[in-house]
Write a protein that binds this DNA or RNA. Sequence first.
RNA 1: GCGCCCGUAGCUCAGAGGAUAGAGCGCUGGCCUCCGGAGCCAGGUGCGCAGGUUCGAUUCCUGCCGGGCGCACCA
Length: 555
Amino acid sequence: MLLENLRKAIYQDLKEAALKAREEGLLEFEELPVFVLEKPREKAHGDLATNLAMVLARPAKSAPRKIAQIILDHFPAESNRVMRCEVAGPGFINLFLDPSWVYDVIPEVEEMDEHYGCSNIGQGEKVQIEFVSANPTGLLHMGNARGAALGDTLANVMAAAGFDVTREFYINDAGNQIEAFGRSLEARYLQLLGHNVPFPEDGYPGEDLIESMRGFISQVGDKYLKVAPQLRREILVKYALKEKLEQMKNDLASFGVYYDVWFSEQTLHDSGAIEEVLKELQESGYLYEKDGAIWFRSTLFGDEKDEVLVRSNGVPTYFAADIAYHKNKFQRGFDRVINIWGADHHGHVARLKGAMGALGYNPDRLQVIIMQPVRLFRGGEPVRMSKRSGEYITLRDLIDDVGKDAARYFFVNRSSDSHLDFDLDLAREQSSDNPVYYVQYAHARICSILKQAGEIPNSKEIDLTLLTDPTERALLEEIAELPREVGYAALHLEPHRLTHYVYNLANLFHGFYTNCHVLNAEAGLREARLALVNACRITLRNTLRLIGVSAPERM
RNA sequence: GCGCCCGUAGCUCAGAGGAUAGAGCGCUGGCCUCCGGAGCCAGGUGCGCAGGUUCGAUUCCUGCCGGGCGCACCA
């Protein structure tokens, strides 16, 4: 039986033992409190341990150790591979499994192959993950890159855990920044044609816009010189936006990130969706007029101040569009909607959730992951970047510099609410100091062994119980943990757990490798080890795939 | 000033209401007759401060200190 199922069964047995004891009048409690059954840190504390007796101490009004003994008296001994139980420490119940349980994992991994690690804890819940959604007025920066790695990995992880996942990119192709974009393009266009016009103060100074207009001119020349500015800007925006989006799509694709949906903000304006949602809020009494603008009472939902939805010039704000957008998400049937935002947008969370509440949706169905900023380091020094001047390192630069694998690994390796110091030198390094290489090396090493071995024996026809070395057991136990790791990462929205897991797995493999020979082990043991190593290969590969990192067979 | 996030080893970071808090880097010293040494093993100091809740707090709560980010009719 798979470790996960074993755990569930034992958890159930513990529950029933407590309930039975209550029936017999030995224990007193209203409802069984939540308790944990987990792998203890210390090997001496068994394979699994539970705090059940300790959390029962208060309701049962009794000493934890005493309760533990009562539970054990009602616990079905010798079932579910439990060999021995003991009361320990302040009242833990430690369970020791039949050591042979680990051998079940190899056939399991072989059979599930590329699906090993998957589970169904998501139960098909429809989840949408919106991430990156960068302004199409510029290039993808490090914040976008982190969001891309995080969002895509989270999507992979949740899909593997049995959620029905949709990846979406929201295109901010409307509003003020598009106006500024148009003025910037226009200025570049005119400047390139030799006209000495000033660049707008709120423009986008990046070199990329000049490039874009250079390309435009090579196609159409100066034919828009005399066109009315309003129309001219529209044409330039249309051209540049398309180009920018293509570029983003390409850059994200080279980063291994693909979307199911690219959603245009402009369509919300065009379709009347924004007007509609404004009306809805109006009718529920959440709006009021002040100074010629229309405001949303976001303070009702814990926001610090009310928020403008329609400016006095009649133009809806980004926030208004965002409300319509998120309503649209729910209308599309998503049970849950997850956004990944930079820390500079965290102030937006409460009011958007509030707006969802005002529209009658449970705000908890909207979850926002806030990412802290990225700092790049080179030569031990922070790399200076200025978005104002348009001089910054882009996702494309990063991929060209350190490669997709290292970049994705490094971004996912940190919890989203931790500031990320990205060491470019380390990411590029081809040594074991670089965790990406360390993990990939383990995979390549295994492939090399398997290649030399020729055939991989079917684990059902060999004696796996020959795998008794401590490094073999440790490796088996860690391989068995993948489904649980993936499930945990999905439920807690913590993809960074995966890089930690895969690093640890690689570490255990290297330890095994140093300690145990595979190819020149005696007959029988050799086959068992080949099967072990193959299961490890599958586990490494599957985990790396979730992170979006390649698993090379040679390096 | 108000709000959110963070404060764990020299550095970069994991972790977690429980039984002895971990990893990498750096430093020191070991390990190649043999499957890829891009590897393995050994060695150290630490939960910002002060209260509170709890049988038990580094983890939860409050205050303070320190850092980041927000607080536009921008997005």
